[in-house]
Write a protein that binds this DNA or RNA. Structure first.
Ligand SMILES: [Mn+2]
Ligand SMILES: [Mn+2]
Ligand SMILES: [Zn+2]
Ligand SMILES: [Zn+2]
Lengths: 138, 138
DNA sequence: AAACTATTGCAACTTTGTTGCAAATATTTT
DNA sequence: AAAATATTTGCAACAAAGTTGCAATAGTTT
């Protein structure tokens, strides 16, 4: 079973364009997370900065990719593997950032742990970012 | 027992200056987390932007304040309440961001939960950011 | 293939953060 | 309490990151 990139775009009511196809392709090839600058580089500057911003924004809105909070407050994006849809993300996994090689992993196998909040606090979303050494660097 | 702001600065081998005193004062008064822009506003623009950047950087290095990762990747700072020191932060608590009022809390009472990583991954630091409604807004 | 719709690239701009350096301030020494 | 020294500050200039309006272009529908 293999969903083509064009199909993914059509499923999300997006027209199939060069930039969208290329950027989605990049995410699939890379596996890991990408920053805006990575994409600019790896696409060989064939697209305008603004187009990349807008494409990423659209993908996030459609639930195709999700953002990852990082300790150094840079913006990272990765493919959603769960059942994310327009306006509703369900990415119940933690993120891991390797201090050595810099790669960011979506650890789908590792569920978000439960946290007990003080009285009066209501939990909506929990983000967990772990840093250390990845399996390739340790 | 009451440590004055000047004493905190001296304990960290920092000279006591207007901006450092004022900014540290602000953190103590506010309790919660502050962004660079908040500080610029609340000090009534009496200090240069660059001075605020440098002061925050110095405070982080000295272990007086710590940064807080956020889902929207803005940079937040809050006072360290634990035994943080030069180059070594020990802030073992989770952070909570209220979706309504925007306040960010250091929940010192709530410990960082343990996460089990896949084979080969080594954990160094775990950041947990919970969002929802705070005790004042729910 | 014409008509229509959505996306792209460009230009111009804003916001955020960084760096070098001289002037001002804080600390130490005399 | 001055003078000498060390540190910090503000300014200017710059770099990086992100946003917006709009006409040209590319994609989709009929
Ligand atoms: Mn992820
Ligand atoms: Mn905190
Ligand atoms: Zn690694
Ligand atoms: Zn609130």
């Amino acid at each position: 079973m293999h969903t083509s990139i064009a199909d993914i775009l059509k499923q999300n009511q997006l027209s199939v364009t060069g930039s969208r196809t290329k950027i989605l392709e990049l995410f699939q090839q890379t596996g890991g997370a990408l920053a805006h600058a990575d994409i600019e580089l790896k696409t060989g500057e064939q697209f305008d900065r603004v187009t990349i911003y807008r494409t990423l924004q659209t993908f996030v809105e459609k639930g195709i990719i999700h953002t990852i909070p990082t300790a150094d407050n840079s913006v990272l994006y990765a493919l959603c593997k769960d059942q994310c849809s327009e306006g509703h993300h369900h990415d119940n996994h933690i993120h891991f950032i390797c201090d050595d090689c810099g790669t960011t992993y979506c650890l789908e196998q590792v569920a978000i742990p439960e946290v007990r909040l003080p009285n009066g606090f209501t939990k909506k979303q929990t983000d967990v970012v772990v840093s250390g050494l990845c399996n390739k660097c340790s």
